[in-house]
């Protein structure tokens, strides 16, 4: 594998892995606190991307403002999903499987609402209007302004989330809820308030990830769904209960899709069209070999369940 190709693939790994991490943390948080593998998470990403697209088309080109708008819309989409669907279903004490089905249904509804929006205003396959430019170039190492936004933003948000989880009353309440919901209720933790806050954080992170993903690629109502299997693979690698494991999982998935895929293509002529199979392979391998993922290895770092 030529060094230039290796370098490019590693840069892509860092950039895409950071975005996967932002998306996957929301899934881990939802699963840990709400006990729900939320497939509507994909549409929170798409909703954030559309918020970012629309505000950028309106002339706002400050990435911070764009990401803030995406955070708000993603957070609102997640909170409304909880208040209108998940919460009433939980009150009826429906089964785990019903909640999963409900998450699929919410995802479909949100996706087709985005289709309606995109069709009405011709917003298919557009890109968030932040010009891409090279910030640093040394031989084959090229870093763009998108890299400069995506990687630090993701790392900063992950850091803030870890701080929130470990150092704030809300974080303690979230961890208590993740460990034992019944006990958390008995000891007076305001469970509904904590859940609302969790959904806001989950949706907000997904929204920001959507904004950054929309700068990397083209925005359409299916973009979140197209990424969701890779994101789930990252969360499953993290054991669905560990922040640090999820982040590591995100980079492993991105490394597999980029560097390993390019190595296999270059060395063994394996078609790049097999790239979407990689997250499936990871999910099956983890579930078969090590269902707890990286969580046991990284027990000290940002775990929700301790």
């Amino acid at each position: 594998m030529p060094p230039a190709l290796l370098t490019t693939s590693l840069v892509n790994t860092l950039q895409i892995g950071s975005l996967y991490a932002l998306m996957a943390l929301g899934i881990t948080l939802t699963f840990s606190v709400m006990k729900l593998p939320n497939f509507a998470h994909a549409e929170f990403v798409s909703a954030g991307a559309y918020a970012a697209l629309i505000i950028s088309l309106a002339g706002v080109l400050n990435p911070l403002l764009i990401m803030a708008a995406a955070f708000v819309i993603g957070a609102l989409a997640a909170l409304l999903s909880h208040l209108l669907v998940f919460k009433p279903l939980e009150q009826r004490q429906v089964s785990f499987y019903t909640l999963i089905l409900a998450s699929f249904a919410i995802g479909l509804i949100l996706r087709y609402l985005l289709f309606l929006l995109a069709d009405s205003f011709n917003l298919f396959d557009l890109r968030i209007a932040i010009p891409l430019r090279i910030l640093f170039r040394q031989d084959s190492l090229i870093l763009s302004n998108l890299f400069a936004w995506a990687v630090p933003t993701s790392l900063l948000l992950v850091f803030l989330l870890t701080l929130l989880l470990n150092r704030s009353p809300l974080g303690r309440e979230m961890r208590a809820l993740a460990n034992n919901p019944s006990l958390a209720r008995v000891i007076g933790i305001p469970v509904e308030r904590v859940k609302n806050a969790t959904w806001l954080i989950v949706g907000g992170l997904a929204g920001v990830a959507g904004a950054l993903w929309g700068m990397q690629t083209a925005v359409n109502p299916l973009m979140g769904w197209a990424a969701i299997i890779s994101v789930f693979a990252a969360a499953i690698l993290g054991g669905l209960s560990s922040f640090s494991g999820t982040i590591l999982g995100a980079y492993v998935v991105a490394f597999s899709e980029n560097t390993i895929m390019l190595f296999l293509n270059y060395s063994f002529s394996l078609d790049l069209a097999y790239k979407p199979a990689i997250p499936f392979i990871i999910i099956i391998a983890v579930l078969l070999i090590r269902p707890q993922g990286f969580s046991a290895l990284l027990r000290r770092g940002g775990d929700l369940k301790r």
């Binding site: 490019t8 693939s9 892509n12 895409i16 690629t217 083209a218 359409n220 899709e257 390019l262 790239k275």
Partner: peptide, 22 residues
């Protein structure tokens, strides 16, 4: 180089095409 029809992010493909052109 083939990409899967459902792909929405093609940085891997771009890197491969670039290397082949080089």
């Amino acid at each position: 180089f083939a990409y899967a029809p459902q792909s929405t992010e093609l940085s891997t493909e771009a890197a491969a095409v670039s290397a082949a052109l080089a």
